[in-house]
């Protein structure tokens, strides 16, 4: 489904990822953990081309990601949806409009583009958007501006927008980092449901170890740009966590 082959990336002179290889299989749900700045976000942003690797390859659904071709990137982006820490919604639009913007990638011809820009969407897309809103439990908020919603509701709108793409992979970049624990749990639960019911692969960057243990089967830990652990969430013991999250000073002397 998604395969990283020996990818490396430097920002300036600072190496962020050094030779990471990882394969995510179809319909899998994995958690990416590791200290801040370890390269987790950089890794998932390589999937949809917002970060270009210095070396190595990324494969999405058996196609190699061609970073130089705009049209190739666009077709990859349509298959891979992304959810963010700060939701990244368009504040002044309604919930439904935000969700519908997830369908824009399917409107390719000039006619479709112009119609969508004037506010015309395909009827089946509007119905799909309402179905998805029902699925995430925000049906009655469809006509409300998103800046009036709570944080948890906003993240559910963002997930609905992602689902609107009908993606094969859902990338989630710290989706609950700005939510309270209870709301965060609901969001992770929703991602889990999406993974099981719709068979969409989920790659989730996360800091909450308790939730990782509860909801995920596979965990990948990254530290200083390298994969430190790749295995079952139940195998995450205290010693391992200590190693993953050991203090910065110790890392420097090591």
């Amino acid at each position: 489904m998604v395969k990283f082959v020996e990818v490396s990336k430097n920002f300036g002179r600072k190496p962020v990822l050094s030779g990471v290889s990882l394969e995510v299989r179809e319909g899998e749900m994995i958690a990416l953990i590791g200290p801040s700045g370890s390269g987790k976000t950089t890794l998932i942003r390589m999937v949809n081309g917002f970060v270009v690797p210095d070396s190595g390859e990324v494969w999405v659904m058996n196609r190699k990601v061609e970073y130089r071709s705009r049209s190739a990137l666009k077709s990859i982006r349509k298959e891979t949806a992304m959810v963010y820490q700060l939701f990244n919604l368009v504040d002044r639009l309604t919930t439904l409009q935000n969700v519908l913007s997830g369908a824009l990638g399917r409107y390719n011809s000039l006619m479709e583009t112009l119609l969508s820009c004037m506010g015309f969407f395909k009827r089946e897309d509007v119905e799909l958007a309402m179905d998805i809103l029902r699925y995430v439990g925000l049906e009655e908020k469809a006509y409300e501006r998103v800046d009036r919603l709570s944080g948890g509701q906003k993240q559910r709108v963002a997930i609905a927008r992602a689902l609107m793409q009908q993606p094969r992979v859902l990338l989630a970049d710290e989706p609950i980092a700005s939510l309270d624990p209870k709301t965060g749990k609901k969001i992770i639960n929703l991602l889990r449901r999406i993974n099981q019911e719709k068979g969409i692969a989920v790659i989730c960057v996360l800091h909450h170890i308790d939730m990782v243990r509860e909801y995920f089967e596979r965990v990948v830990a990254i530290r200083e740009g390298r994969v430190l652990f790749d295995g079952r969430a139940t195998d995450l013991d205290e010693g391992l966590l200590e190693e993953i999250y050991q203090l910065e000073e110790e890392a420097c002397t090591a």
């Binding site: 949809n48 990859i76 963010y84 913007s101 824009l104 583009t113 820009c117």
Partner: peptide, 16 residues
């Protein structure tokens, strides 16, 4: 810039 990137990540054109 955040919503801009989110919309771009769905594979849209410049005009959209």
């Amino acid at each position: 810039r955040k919503p801009l990137e989110a919309i771009e990540a769905t594979g849209t054109s410049f005009l959209q």
